[in-house]
Simulated scan of single mutants.
Amino acid sequence: MNPVSLVCILLGVALNACAQLLLKAGTNAVGHFDFTRANILPIGFKLATQWPVIGGLACYVISVVVWILGLSRVDVSIAYPMLSLGYVVNAFAAWYLFGEVLSLQRLIGIGIILLGVVVLARS
């Protein structure tokens, strides 16, 4: 994989991970809610007007464009598994930003993901 392809793939992964974190921040700002027919419009409006949600959706749009550029340069059998790096980024970012727990079991899983990505990238 050449440097431009790698940058496209990693940027797509980073934007996707950023989108997830922003969506989580937006839902945290709204708080826990029940998904009922009566809540669809008020909660939907509340979520749609949260800046982190808007930013997260924007990151998704940009990530799709970058991802398409990456897919035009890299086999999907290599590119798609690279998305798993987003799990690693999000796990550490959620720990840092939201105080989520990184148990030993989760860290082992992250290590397995990283090992898989290394093996894949070398193929």
Rank of each mutant, 00 (worst) to 15 (best):
R122P: 01
C59V: 03
C18Q: 07
V117M: 12
Q50I: 11
W67R: 02
M82K: 02
F92Q: 01
N39W: 00
R37H: 09
A48S: 13
V117D: 08
G99L: 00
V101E: 14
Y96L: 13
V7W: 06
V76N: 02
L97N: 01
A29F: 01
A19Y: 02
A48C: 14
Y96D: 04
V88R: 04
L21K: 02
P81H: 10
V61A: 15
A91T: 15
A93V: 01
L6R: 00
L114A: 09
I68Q: 09
G56W: 03
L21G: 01
L47H: 09
L15E: 13
V30M: 09
V65C: 10
L83W: 09
R73D: 07
I112H: 04
Q50H: 05
L71Y: 11
Y96E: 06
G55F: 05
S63L: 10
I54G: 06
A79E: 07
V13A: 06
R73F: 02
D34E: 14
A25G: 07
T49V: 08
K46H: 08
Y80Q: 11
P81A: 11
D75V: 04
I43E: 04
L102H: 06
P81K: 06
I110M: 07
L107T: 05
V13G: 05
N28S: 08
L6K: 00
Y87E: 09
G55R: 05
L21E: 00
V66A: 12
G55P: 09
I40D: 08
A58T: 12
P52W: 09
S77M: 02
D75T: 00
M82S: 14
V53W: 03
C59F: 07
I78S: 06
N16Y: 09
I62L: 15
L83M: 13
N28L: 14
A93D: 03
D34L: 09
L23C: 12
L11W: 01
T36E: 06
L85M: 15
G26A: 06
Y87R: 07
Y80C: 05
R37Y: 07
G31N: 04
G55S: 15
L6H: 01
L115H: 02
P42L: 03
F45M: 12
L41D: 05
I108F: 12
L23E: 10
S123E: 11
